[in-house]
Amino acid sequence: METYQIYSLTSAILFIIGIGGIFMARHFIKKIIATVIMGGGVFLSFVSFAQRDAITFADPVPHALVITGIVVAVASAALALALARRIYQLTGEETFTNDK
């Protein structure tokens, strides 16, 4: 087993933890954290393949994609956080439970 394989398998596990978290977590903040974990899994898989395809240096394209992706994911997470805080501020709700 090579290094990249360990991480690509981990990436799949993280992805699934993230997606499970989105489905099952209740609190807004936890749901948002779950999306970030899911994203982390996806980015990890990109980078692990970059390591596999290294020649003189690791494949730079996935690295660049991941940097872009992280920034995009952070922007979405910040927006989600703003929404969650605003909802809590206005209604005191911190889960979707009481929203039909």
């Binding site: 997606i19 499970g20 989105i22 489905f23 099952m24 749901k31 979707f96 039909k100």
Partner: peptide
């Protein structure tokens, strides 16, 4: 319809 809107059900249908 509103049960389809629950996240657990979303997950199950996924």
């Amino acid at each position: 319809e509103s049960s389809l809107r629950r996240w657990e059900i979303f997950g199950i249908s996924f």
